[in-house]
Design a protein around this nucleic acid. Structure first.
Lengths: 113, 113
DNA sequence: AGATCAATTCGATGATTGTCGAAACAAGGA
DNA sequence: TCCTTGTTTCGACAATCATCGAATTGATCT
């Protein structure tokens, strides 16, 4: 990961609504959520949400996939793990710190609910 | 960790100079670095650096300690680990993701160089 | 006390960001 | 084709942020 990509990702997360949004997608896991459902859950107008989704998408933290009329958004776990790895690079002057633990979404059945 | 604290920490890291600064301190580990040495390493004016250090300090990501005439700054690893834990809370709908790996600074002798 | 060094605060400026209604766009259904 | 639904883009405004020289504070030595 490069510095500019890390800054993009961090500034994407450094905002009340986007942070809540990302954590919502983390908890939704592989199932993901439609844009409308997210706006509903967070209680913000569609246009505002769209702005934030685009921000997270541009930063590479979420992926989108069309499903019928809805756009399903999912957290991008590899990107998140890469960000954490970048932050902790050469942690503690090379002393073996367990910073390489990742988070892989449990392959839950998609489109189940 | 609370949402506001997480946002403080993330927005503190979401800036070119502060990100480089934090990573510098992560790599310095328990030894830490004096403000002047940091300004030197990053090549930014003292007043600008002080602004950024205060930002990271306010966010709880660094700690400062006076040593003779200098102020030594160190990365706060527990705070960083707490932030990552918050981001990945309830990851993947509770499926066991290894997100609790922390980074503990190896107790290197202080003031060695 | 006076001198010196390290670091922070002040102040003004230019740039970026978040918000949200209205309008536009995309994809299906009748 | 017309209509409906889900989502994004546009536009304008207020608010926040980064920068850096100059002045200030705090600590140490003689």
């Amino acid at each position: 990961m490069q510095a500019t990509a890390a800054i993009e990702a961090l500034s994407a997360l450094a905002q009340e609504h986007r942070l809540a949004l990302f954590r919502l997608l983390v908890q939704a896991g592989e199932r993901g959520m439609a844009a409308g459902a997210i706006a509903d859950a967070l209680g913000i107008p569609n246009s505002s949400l769209s702005f934030h989704l685009a921000h997270l998408n541009r930063a590479g933290l979420v992926r989108q996939e069309r499903q019928h009329r809805s756009l399903i958004y999912r957290a991008d776990f590899p990107a998140m793990n890469g960000l954490v790895a970048y932050l902790m690079e050469n942690c503690c002057a090379g002393a073996g710190c367990g910073t390489d633990a990742g988070c892989e979404p449990a392959e839950i059945e998609r489109n189940s609910a």
